[in-house]
């Protein structure tokens, strides 16, 4: 009972924030009903996907302060599990996604155990290294399509079971369900025992140990939680895109983008990943489509991205949410 109450307990959040989030949620709920372009819909779906990626990253990266730049490998494990199970055994999404999640968690434990013997930069670089190793393996593993990747067979009829729809609206609502599920999970997580212990670890590992916290194990557990989020979205990605290749779903670019959501939005806060995705994804989409049409401007969108990251890193490491909280302390909002 207490757990259920805790999941929906938002009592520590200012009323203003809740109102804004309420209005935003309402907008998300009715978005498919208001007239929109298919491009806007695709952008919204990407926004939801990256919010979820970001929420996952935020557990270990934000609350735990462990900068993980190898999350794409788990998106790949999720995506390829779903694809392979569908192609070879005709297994529906709702079974293959949890299986993919379990594979991802097993892998995360296997590499998390040695990974968390490192700290700081060394850890961050090592996460990239592990991700690249797995990418190399997938690129030459014929069972998962090697470098070409896999194409998912189309069902003749739209199917909720296999997560194949003709209209993006269905994908949208499935994701929206996952989005709220993820949001309330994180809301519970941040004030759970593990959440508290993790924040203590981020501040000072030595003090955390003296309070009876098994620092290494806490990090590994949280890493697995972050991994679950990413793996499920990876599985979804496979069904939504029909086409996956390792260069795309397991690239460093994706890992980085995942980390950026929370970093730019505000690492270690409930709203961070959502704000980050809401700012960065439309920016990327619209900037990309606007500049993509112009000859010789490829890369300019990412230049702007890069400038945003550098400015945030240099002047407000706590991201957009950090700016809001600072302003609030001065009594402006």
């Amino acid at each position: 009972m207490e757990v259920i109450r805790n999941i929906f307990d938002l009592s520590d959040i200012p009323r203003k924030d809740l109102t804004v989030f309420g209005i935003f949620s309402l907008f998300l709920l009715i978005f498919p009903l208001i007239p929109h372009s298919s491009f806007a819909m695709a952008t919204m779906i990407e926004f939801l996907m990256f919010s979820l990626y970001g929420m996952g990253w935020n557990t270990i990266g934000g609350y735990g302060g462990q900068v993980d730049l190898g999350k794409a490998q788990y998106a790949g494990i999720g995506a390829f599990t779903t694809a392979v199970m569908l192609i070879h055994w005709n297994i529906p999404f709702w079974i293959s996604a949890p299986v993919g999640m379990i594979f991802a968690i097993i892998w995360s434990f296997a590499i998390g155990y040695p990974l968390f013997r490192m700290r700081g930069h060394y850890f961050a670089i090592a996460t990239i290294a592990t991700s690249l190793v797995l990418l190399d393996v997938f690129q030459s593993w014929n069972f998962v399509g090697a470098a070409k990747g896999l194409e998912l067979p189309l069902k003749s009829m739209p199917s909720l079971l296999y997560l194949q729809f003709r209209s993006d609206t269905y994908y949208y609502y499935i994701l929206l369900f996952l989005f709220f599920f993820g949001f309330f999970y994180i809301n519970w997580f941040r004030k759970s025992r593990l959440g508290f212990q993790l924040r203590a670890i981020k501040d000072n590992e030595e003090v955390a140990r003296s309070l009876g916290i098994n620092v290494h194990w806490c990090k590994i557990k949280t890493y697995a939680i972050a991994t679950s989020f990413v793996a499920v979205v990876g599985s979804f990605h496979a069904c939504y895109n029909f086409n996956i290749d390792p260069e795309d779903i397991m690239s460093l670019d994706l890992s980085i983008l995942i980390a950026m959501m929370a970093m730019v939005g505000g690492a270690g806060s409930l709203w961070g990943p959502i704000i980050g995705a809401a700012v960065l994804i439309p920016l990327k989409s619209y900037l990309g489509s606007w500049l993509g049409g112009k000859e010789g401007l490829a890369g300019l969108d990412l230049v702007i991205y890069a400038l945003i990251i550098m400015i945030i890193a240099a002047f407000e490491p706590r991201g957009i949410w950090g700016i809001v909280e600072k302003a609030r302390k001065r009594g402006k909002i």
Partner: peptide, 15 residues
């Protein structure tokens, strides 16, 4: 005692 950046006094004790 390295001050905790992320947790309030009560939350620190809760840890």
């Amino acid at each position: 005692f390295v001050a905790s950046g992320d947790l309030s006094v009560l939350e620190n004790i809760m840890v």
